[in-house]
Design a binder for these strands. Structure first.
Length: 282
DNA sequence: CTCTTTCAATCGC
DNA sequence: GGCGATTGAAAGA
């Protein structure tokens, strides 16, 4: 039973007023996959629905749908100690272009920065990873200290859209690339000790849609699958051009993961923007 | 020194 | 195909 605790909300950032084009269908995340290089629908719409004109219930979509009319449709995701907002913030054509540039321009870490020791054995991390950000910042991940590469135009473009939609300015981005559904990341919390107090983490996705799962700390491990421990996992579908804002205190008690999905054949690039405090000591 | 937290692969169902 | 349980060395508080 997948509980999709998703409700509509107004606006966490700057977008004036929410408006929708077609009938108000409550869209629940579709656990099915979706390939990134699919043909197009409306090239200037965000991926939130668009009613799909063909045979959908409700009134027909408006004839004139100008791109300037379209605003992200935010969904609020809430549970005990969990507070997130999700919206597709890039049009399909914007996201396609950005994804292409990311694939062309990013150079991922290799060697020691891409290996991790688990239960005494060393593994390549089951994904690719790289960090970009302001000079002299560092971020520790699984024991290794990541020094960011300088910003690239495509990354600043994404960061600027995130600023427009959330009001937050981030100085660091950790990028993970999942080649296909076999690439994944295990359950973890993001280390907030080296982040600005109470600042959110902005997770932006391009390419293949992937399931994303939150689990409460108390619902994990040894003897914790008891009777009414009613903190069910919360599953989201992160889409091409989508932004998931993870607000404090989500990362304190909730773990998240990107599980294996063997039916997914296409790559996904995810960027988690952060406000990092610490500077490298030289 | 002690205690807590962390990561990914494998196996069983 | 997916999920829960299981496996420990290293780092940090």
């Amino acid at each position: 039973m997948d509980k999709f605790a998703i409700k509509k909300r107004k606006v966490p950032g700057d977008w004036k007023s929410e408006r929708r084009a077609g009938g108000g269908r409550e869209s629940k995340p579709d656990p099915d996959l979706s390939d990134p290089a699919r043909g197009e629908g409306n090239p200037e719409s965000f991926g939130n629905d668009a009613g799909g004109g063909a045979g959908g219930p409700g009134p027909p979509p408006p004839l004139t749908l100008l791109s300037t009319d379209v605003r992200p449709v935010w969904r609020h995701v809430a549970a005990e100690g969990l507070d997130c907002d999700y919206a597709v913030i890039f049009t399909r054509s914007e996201a396609d272009d950005i994804f292409l540039r990311l694939e062309e321009e990013l150079e991922y870490f290799s060697g020691d920065l891409s290996r991790v020791q688990v239960y005494g054995k060393w593994y390549q991390i089951p994904r690719k990873q790289v960090a970009h950000g302001d000079p002299r910042l560092t971020y520790k991940y699984s024991g290794v200290t990541l020094s960011p590469k300088p910003w690239l135009p495509v990354l600043e473009r994404i960061r600027e859209r995130v600023r427009e939609t959330t009001g937050h300015v981030f100085n660091f981005v950790l990028i993970n690339r999942y080649q296909d559904g076999k690439d994944h990341i295990g359950e973890h919390r993001d280390d907030e000790r080296e982040l600005e107090q109470g600042s959110p983490i902005a997770s932006v996705s391009f390419g293949a849609s992937r399931d994303f799962v939150f689990r409460h700390g108390s619902a994990r491990g040894g003897g914790s699958r008891r009777r009414q421990g009613r903190l069910e996992p919360i599953k989201l579908l992160l889409e091409h051009g989508g932004l998931l804002l993870m607000n404090h205190p989500t990362n304190v008690h909730w773990y998240h993961s990107l599980p294996v999905r063997k039916r997914v054949l296409a790559p996904r690039v995810n960027l988690t923007f952060r406000k990092v405090l610490r500077l490298s000591k030289n």
